[in-house]
């Protein structure tokens, strides 16, 4: 699996270097270092070192992988976090936070309904007071305001 991650990074490095060589100048017209100098150095060294790491990885692949259950737990939390990111855009900070907490805690903290509901209500309220009232910071506004 680490190989896949490294290959993805290699792809990124090649793309990065490609733009550095195609779009950005190495030197400016006055003979100074241009905007492309650093990106070219970074891009080329990135490709070289990622390739080295990939070869090394292919030579000794004894890296043990996590169990399916570990990946399930991770995937579950990531999926919920991403849903939360989308919900934030749609329903705004308070509603999205409460929904996210109810669903996530229902799975993680199973069987303690009252405790979960209490957290899901109190956390957005606490955030509202901290950010909106005390710190005067903005909260994610709702695209579709719920009628509550």
């Amino acid at each position: 699996m680490r190989v896949l991650f490294l290959v993805a990074l290699l792809g990124g490095a090649i793309f990065y270097a490609y733009i550095a060589f195609m779009d950005l100048n190495f030197m400016t017209r006055t003979g100074r270092l241009g905007p492309g100098f650093f990106p070219r150095v970074i891009g080329v060294s990135g490709i070289v070192i990622t390739l080295l790491a990939i070869f090394e990885e292919l030579r000794n692949k004894q890296l043990q992988e996590g169990s399916a259950e570990q990946w399930r737990e991770f995937g579950f939390l990531v999926a919920l976090a991403l849903c939360y990111a989308v919900l934030l855009r749609l329903f705004g900070g308070y509603v999205a936070t409460a929904l996210f907490l109810v669903v996530t805690l229902a799975h993680l903290n199973r069987g303690r309904l009252m405790q979960n509901l209490l957290i899901a209500v109190l956390v957005p309220v606490g955030i509202y007071f901290l950010f909106d009232k005390v710190l005067n910071a903005s909260m994610p506004p709702a695209l579709f305001a719920l009628p509550i």
Binding site: L77, L101, L105, N109, I119, V123
Partner: peptide, 8 residues
């Protein structure tokens, strides 16, 4: 319990 709150 702490985890989801940290995400928020």
């Amino acid at each position: 319990v702490l985890g989801p709150i940290v995400v928020v």
